[in-house]
Structures are given as C-alpha cells and as structure tokens.
C-alpha cells in the first residue's frame, strides 16, 4: 500500500515535471505556431474564394458559391495554352541547359591541384547568386540596351546592326535561361563538389595503380559516386517544373514579349492585383499549385524508387 502510494506520487511529480517543461517549450514555440496559423493556414482557408464570387464587402464566408466557373473560364481563355506552354518551356530549358553545368563545373573544380586557386574561383562563382533579382535584371536591361548597352556596342562593331533583345519574343527564353545559368552555376555546384570530396580517396588510388587516366577516373569514379545526388536533385527540379521564378519574368517581360514570356504567375498578378478579379486569379493560382503538387509527388516517388532518396 505504502509502495503503491509512493509510486503514484512519484508518477505525479514526474508527470507534473513533464507538464511544466512542456509549458515552457510551448511558450518558446508560440510565436512560430501563431505565425504558421495566421500567415500560412489562414490564406489556405482563403483559397475557397476560387470557388466563389468573392465580394470584399461581404467577406469570404458569405460570398456566393459558383463551383468551377473560374476554372472553366481559365481553361477556355485564349491565354490558357500560351501560359501553360511558356511556364513549362522556361523551366524545361532552364533544367535542360542549367542542370548539367554545375555538375561539370564541380567535376573540373575537383581536378584543380592548387587549393588556394580553387577556393578563390569558388568564392567568385558564388557572387552572382547573392545579387538581388532587381539588380540582375537591371544589368540585363543595361547591357542589352540597343543604344547604350555593352553587348549591342560589340554587335554593332562586328556587324553594323543592333538587336533590341528585350522587345523580341524569340530572345526572351535565351535571356532568361542564360542569365539564370550565369547567376546560379557556382552556387548550385556546392553540393556536387561536396559529394565529390566525400568520395573515398582509396578508390582513386586503386584506379591509379590500374593505370586509369584522369578522364577515366572522372567518368568511372567521380560521376557514379555522385549519381544519387544528381538523380535526387534532378527529380526535385522536375517536380518544380511548373513553379517558375516569378520575379525575373515579372521584371524583364513587356507586352511586346508576352507571347513567350507571360507565365501563369505573372498572369495571376495582372488579373488579380491589377484588375482585381480576386476569385478568378485565385483559381488560376490554385490550378498552378495543384499541378506543382502533383508533379512533386510523382517525381518524389520516382526518386524514392530510383535512388532511395525522397523528400518525405
């Protein structure tokens, strides 16, 4: 009996201690939990206006339901195909040309004998990543200007003509993808370079003894060793293919180049915040998010099967 009571009071004191601790921990968590509730979950609740005729004076809850009306009018709009195509192609070309380059960059960094030289090159290559999108786009506009731009001055010296790059729809994707490669190749190589450095040096020594040259070592040892990293990142990129960096397009496009440059998110901005068709724009944005989520789930499960790596 006494033993029972002692056990009970011990349990009480330990559970009281756990509760006391949890109160402290929840106090520490409180700001962040509130942040996610208010700034991340309330907007998700607000997504219902995609299925309603939202009237700011009535509010979310009492605005009348209209079902899939906004989705239908988006699918039937003359812009639908163009927006989906542009969104897809900007990403697709970015991956096609931009994905392999950091890998090659990392493989060759690894060939450099001088550690000092290599780390200076690496630091320099990270710089563009930290420059704001506004400045990057400002540089693009400046360098490509037909009258005072450096690029056109060179073209003019060589051919006598100038090209108004930013007003020509056929140039938009090249400019977008090319500047993206310039800005991100160094930064994106960090992870590949780190995985190359983590390879067991014994593998290279063994290859040396077998008389392998540097290309053989690169292709037969380095590349296969970082293949899981490559596959994971590739599938992640593919999962995000309909999720295009909005800001750069927004800053660089003009009505002249909508034909190739207008993407779903810029269209959401114009129809929602400029024309204030809140419900319609929310529906278009929701369509884009659902496609994104589906692609991410699909490619993540492929990644899990292919390399055992997955996001969740």
């Amino acid at each position: 009996m006494a033993y029972e009571m002692r056990k009970k009071s011990l349990m009480n004191s330990s559970s009281r201690r756990i509760i006391k601790k949890n109160i402290a921990l929840y106090l520490l968590l409180m700001p962040t939990i509130l942040y996610f509730l208010i700034f991340r979950y309330v907007p998700i609740y607000g997504l219902q206006i995609a299925f309603k005729e939202y009237n700011p004076f009535i509010g979310y809850k009492d605005s009348p339901w209209v079902g899939f009306k906004h989705f239908q009018s988006f699918f039937n709009s003359i812009y639908f195909f163009r927006l989906v195509r542009n969104t897809f192609l900007l990403s697709f070309y970015s991956i096609l040309f931009g994905f392999p380059i950091p890998i090659i960059f990392a493989l060759f960094l690894n060939e450099l004998k001088s550690e000092k030289f290599r780390s200076v090159i690496q630091s320099i290559s990270y710089v563009p990543h930290f420059i704001s999108t506004v400045i990057i786009c400002g540089l693009i506009v400046n360098f490509l200007s037909p009258s005072t731009g450096f690029v056109n001055a060179v073209i003019k010296a060589l051919t006598g003509n100038t090209i108004d790059f930013l007003r020509k729809p056929e140039w938009f994707r090249t400019i977008y993808v090319g500047s993206g490669i310039w800005q991100q190749m160094g930064w994106n190589s960090i992870i590949y370079y780190a995985s190359i450095r983590a390879i067991d040096p014994f593998l290279y020594e063994a290859a040396d003894i077998d008389g392998a040259n540097r290309w053989q070592k690169m292709i037969r040892i380095s590349l296969p060793s970082i293949l899981p990293t490559i596959i994971t990142l590739l599938l992640l990129n593919l999962g995000n293919i309909m999720n295009v960096g909005f800001e750069k397009v927004f800053l660089l496009y003009t009505p002249n180049t909508y034909q190739t440059a207008d993407i779903i998110s810029t269209y959401v901005y114009r129809s929602g915040l400029v024309d204030q068709q809140y419900s319609f724009a929310t529906a278009v944005g929701l369509f884009n998010s659902i496609i994104n989520l589906l692609l991410l789930v699909i490619f993540n499960s492929v990644s899990k099967k292919a390399s055992g790596e997955s996001l969740w």
């Binding site: 700034f39 997504l47 929310t282 998010s289």
Partner: peptide
Amino acid sequence: LTMFINAGMIPNYLL
C-alpha cells in the same frame, strides 16, 4: 505541410 501547400499571391494579399 505549408512547404507543399502554399495559398499563393491573392489569398496572401487579402490576408
């Protein structure tokens, strides 16, 4: 969950 489900521009603006 909020990394995968993001309400997007308009609901955030309205909030």
